[in-house]
């Protein structure tokens, strides 16, 4: 049974149909990379997966349970789904360590020492233990994103969603963030990653999905996707991004 399964998912904003009949599944421990042109609905799909957007139709099955039914506990579900945004969205009025420990303390009701101890381990892991006491404003974009990853991990999620985590970064800062994500993948974290970093997709992904105009156009292994794409739109997109 897949950890997460999406069936015939649709999302409309008013009259604009952004997701049209999306089907996909993510196995536990799998790294799924979503690629596709801007505006194709990648962010919307990812946001549907933790219900920041409510789908207009279809099903999302998590651990065998449809998360779109009324009785489903959205908050508990979101605690097990970590999300990293393009713009980090750190809480600017809290220090780095407070950003990381805030949710464990207030949601999981962890005591402060335990939360801080765990938080420091996570900051260590993303290479920012020395920045624990500073405010996010003093950090570079790459550092902020790594704090955001630590913050999400502090909730001990079962799956991590990344929406273009490196798109807002200066090129020289991208590597540090991707390395942290690579490490996570190696540890067996289930991940869904929207990215334009084709190198990352090739090396780390178990499966790559190409989306265009609200459809999943192609869903295959990275080797298949990058050496032998089937669909013309996939070919056209890949030739454009790979030859840049």
């Amino acid at each position: 049974m897949p950890l997460l399964e999406v069936k015939k998912l649709q999302k409309k904003f008013g009259d604009l149909q952004v997701l049209k009949n999306i089907n996909l599944s993510i196995e536990e421990g799998e790294v799924l990379v979503l690629i596709g042109p801007s505006g194709s609905g990648k962010s919307t799909l990812l946001r549907c997966l933790n219900l920041l957007e409510v789908p207009t139709d279809g099903e999302i099955i998590y651990n065998g349970e449809n998360i779109l039914t009324h009785k489903f506990n959205v908050r508990t579900y979101r605690q097990s789904v970590g999300m990293c945004f393009q713009n980090f969205n750190l809480f600017p009025f809290m220090t780095v360590i407070d950003n990381v420990t805030y949710a464990p303390i207030h949601i999981l009701k962890k005591n402060k020492e335990d939360a801080v101890e765990k938080g420091m381990q996570l900051l260590q892991k993303v290479g920012l233990a020395d920045k624990a006491k500073v405010y996010p404003e003093t950090l570079s974009g790459g550092q902020r994103q790594r704090v955001a990853i630590a913050r999400a991990l502090a909730m001990e999620p079962k799956i991590m969603l990344f929406d273009e985590p490196t798109s807002a970064l200066d090129p020289e800062l991208v590597g540090d963030v991707l390395n942290v994500m690579r490490e996570l993948a190696d540890e067996g974290m289930t991940m869904a990653v929207v990215t334009h970093e084709m190198g990352f997709a090739k090396d780390v992904a178990d499966r790559v999905i190409f989306m265009d105009s609200g459809y999943v156009v192609e869903d295959s292994s990275p080797a298949e996707m990058f050496t032998n794409p089937k669909n013309d739109r996939t070919k056209e997109f890949l030739s454009r991004v790979l030859n840049k």
Partner: peptide, 26 residues
């Protein structure tokens, strides 16, 4: 920024908590 509330929701805070703990203090 709307991202502040979304980050809080994504961590598992309720709407009201996201508002009162994250948005309103700022």
């Amino acid at each position: 920024d709307k991202g502040q509330k979304e980050a809080a929701l994504a961590l598992g805070f309720s709407n009201a908590q996201a508002m009162f703990k994250i948005v309103i203090p700022q």
